[in-house]
Amino acid sequence: MLRFVAHRFVSMIFVLFSISVLSFLIFFATPGVDPAARIAGKNADQATLAAVRKDFGLDKPLPVRYAVMMKKLFITRDLTSYVNRGAKVIPQVTAAAPVTLSLVLGAAVIWVILSIAMGLLAAVFRGKPIDTAVMIIGLVGISMPVFWLGEVVNLLTQSRFHHSPIFSWVPPLGYTSFTSSPFGWFKSLFFPWLTLSVLYIGIYARVLRSALVEAQEEDYVRTARAKGLTETRVLLRHSLRTSLIAFVSLFGLDFGALVGGGALLTEVVFNLHGVGKLTFDSLQNLDLPVILATVIYAAFFVVVANAIVDLVYAALDPRVRRA
């Protein structure tokens, strides 16, 4: 087991390293990306351009630039943006993290509760019209582009019906921090939560339903049933518990990806300045220091979530360790 953990750790570091190198190389392979002229300003003199290039270390070979940037990011922690000069990168990420966390946590609560309810309902009425209906409703949620759904929500709440009593309470797009106003926080995130969770409700309900259906056929469930327990009891007591393993591990992976900035589209549409929006803006600005920081941040969560889920599985099932 220890060897497995060590192995996982090494491959985690490898993946993070490759991703940082890859982002770095992609950046410098992009034509027109040389930040010197953008930093120097419009119609800058050629001498000024050269001086700026030297100042920012852009005249050094690529490996040196990479090493310097990584040092500034992880060791001295004073990496600054190319676009908003003097703005440190790490505080930008730490300022964005709570926004993303608020969005993802709220959405997760909604999707977990609703998907368990829907999954149970479908499993109980397996094969009946209710089952089909619930599953199709879930599929409709999966099938809508999340950014489009967000736009439609904005159209209804921010303009078309903004002055009607139903939506007049909706604040303008943007984030209100929990510490400044808990109620404002709730109001500003309510529709983003719903929008983001729509996709996951469908997926999780389906996963849970399948797992439940499968568990119903397991020996211990048959035993429980043979002992004369009611169907509902069997479902809740025995099947649900085992079925939740797949559900929880899937949740771990999604949660990791979303906290790392995977909710990019939702954040962009609702103008929430989270990690995803920061990543998107930095890509739009071609602001390499911020791109690197956010990409590594995102990859870290994905990799860690992956590793945790694997480890849990390895602990539960020794065969995985050999695979």
Binding site: V15, I19, L22, S23, P31, G261, G262, L286, A299, V302
Partner: peptide, 26 residues
């Protein structure tokens, strides 16, 4: 597998955005 790991952990939209910026322009 490591290759798959890297693509897997590289956030999907970022990879696409990065590649498109390079490829669309040139």
């Amino acid at each position: 597998s490591r290759f798959l790991d890297v693509i897997w952990a590289f956030p999907v939209y970022l990879l696409a955005i990065s590649l498109s910026t390079v490829l669309i322009a040139k």
